[in-house]
Design a binder for these strands. Structure first.
Lengths: 201, 201
DNA sequence: GATCGGGCGGGACAAATGTCACGGGTCACC
DNA sequence: GGTGACCCGTGACATTTGTCCCGCCCGATC
C-alpha cells in the first residue's frame, strides 16, 4: 500500500481527491491537512510515502513545505499539485526537491498515475510546462525588488510599502523602478501582475 | 434518479466531483462541460434536473449561464458552486434565478445534500454569506464605472482604458475618481480589488 | 415643464508615481 | 586588493494620477 498525505486548502477538493485516491486499490490516505504549516507535523505522525502538496495554502506555501519535508523527512517523496502552472512555481518546486509537478487541469486518473511514478523514482513534469519554465528563465528580480513588488501588487502606495518594509520612500521608488525596468512593463501594477503570473513572488 | 449536469472548468475538480456524485445511489451525471458557453446546449441535449455551475469559467460566466437556463429551460434548477463566496456573486446568482449557492470550502457531502434540497424546492444558501451579501449592499457603481474599473484592474494606464472603451481620457479620469470615491478607497488599484472582492465586476 | 441621474467631455491643479544620476555600505569572488 | 552585485538612501525632474470645477445631452420621473 502506498501511504499518501494530502495537503490542500479547499475542503471540497481535498475531500474529493482523498475519496478518489482512497478508491485506488494500492493507495491509502494516511493524513489530510488544509494548511501549509501542518504538513510537517502530520507527515512526522503518519509517515507517508508520498506527499501531495497544493502550493497556495494558508500558513505556509506548499513549496516551502516541500523544502521542510526534504530536510526533516528525506525519504518522503513530494508531488506538487497546483491550479496554476506558473513557470516560476515549477522551478521553485524542483529547487525545493519535489519529484513531480502536476496541474489540476489534467484528468484525475493522471494524479494516481503520477503518485505511482513518483514513488517508483520517476520524475513527473508536464513537458509543455517544463518548456515554458525554461523559456521564461529564472526570476530577474532581487530579493528586495520581489518584496516591494509583492506589497505593491494590491494597491498600496509608496508610503505604505516604505512603512511595511521599514524602508525610505526613495528606496522603494528605486526598487519599483528597477522591477518595472527588468520586467519590461510600464508601471508597478503590470510589473506585479507579470511577476505573479510567472511565479516570481 | 436525479439527473445532474456539471459545469466546472478545472478538469480534475470536475472529474472528482462527477465521480463522487455518481457514487450517490440516487444521482446520475448526465452531462459534463468545461466552458460556460456549452452549458445551455448540453442541458438541452441531456435534460438534467439540476445544473451545478461554477462561476468563473471560460466562454461565459456561470451566472450568465444560469440566466440563460432560466429562460431556455425553466424547469431546470440551478445550483451555483464556486470557490469565492463574494457577496455580489450571491446577489447576482439570486437575480439570475439560481436556487442554491454553495462554496467549495465545505465538505463534499454538503454538495450532494444541496442537490437534493434544491430539487425538493428548498433554497440552499450559506447563512453567513447571505448576511455578508445583505450587509455589503448592492454595487454602488454605475455601468460605466464598472467597465472602467474592470479594465483598470490589470495595470492599464488611463490612455489604455480610454482607447479600449472609446472614451476621452478626461471621462475615464472622472469615472475612476467617482469609483474611488464610492468605494472609499485611495486609488484605482484598491478600488478594483475591492470591487472584485465584492463580486461587483 | 421641471428635476434628477447618468453618460460624456474639458480644464486646472495638487499629489503620487516613475526615472535618472549619484553616493555610501557590505559581502563574495577572483 | 580590486571588482561587481546588492542594499539603502538623497535629490531633481517629467509624467501620470486623482480631484474638483465646469459644461452639454439624454431619458425617466414627478
Amino acid at each position: 500500500m502506498i501511504r499518501v498525505l494530502l495537503a490542500e486548502d479547499q475542503t471540497m477538493m481535498r475531500g474529493a481527491l482523498a475519496l478518489l485516491l482512497g478508491l485506488e486499490p494500492d493507495m491509502e490516505i494516511v493524513a489530510q491537512v488544509g494548511r501549509g504549516d501542518q504538513v510537517v507535523a502530520a507527515a512526522l505522525e503518519a509517515r507517508p510515502d508520498v506527499c501531495l502538496l497544493d502550493i497556495e495554502m494558508p500558513g505556509r506555501s506548499g513549496l516551502d513545505a516541500a523544502a521542510d519535508l526534504r530536510e526533516r523527512i528525506p525519504g518522503c517523496r513530494v508531488l506538487i499539485v497546483t491550479t496554476f502552472g506558473r513557470p516560476g512555481y515549477l522551478r521553485r518546486a524542483m529547487e525545493a526537491g519535489a519529484w513531480g509537478f502536476v496541474v489540476k487541469d489534467g484528468p484525475v486518473e493522471e494524479l494516481a498515475a503520477a503518485v505511482r511514478r513518483v514513488l517508483a523514482g520517476e520524475r513527473v513534469i508536464d513537458p509543455a510546462l517544463a518548456a515554458a519554465a525554461l523559456g521564461t528563465g529564472p526570476s530577474p528580480l532581487t530579493d528586495r525588488e520581489r518584496d516591494v513588488l509583492a506589497v505593491a501588487g494590491d494597491g498600496a502606495t509608496i508610503a505604505d510599502i516604505a512603512a511595511r518594509l521599514h524602508l525610505s520612500e526613495s528606496t522603494v521608488r528605486n526598487y519599483l523602478s528597477a522591477a518595472i525596468g527588468k520586467t519590461g512593463t510600464r508601471n508597478r501594477v503590470e510589473a506585479a501582475r507579470l511577476a505573479r503570473h510567472n511565479g516570481w513572488l
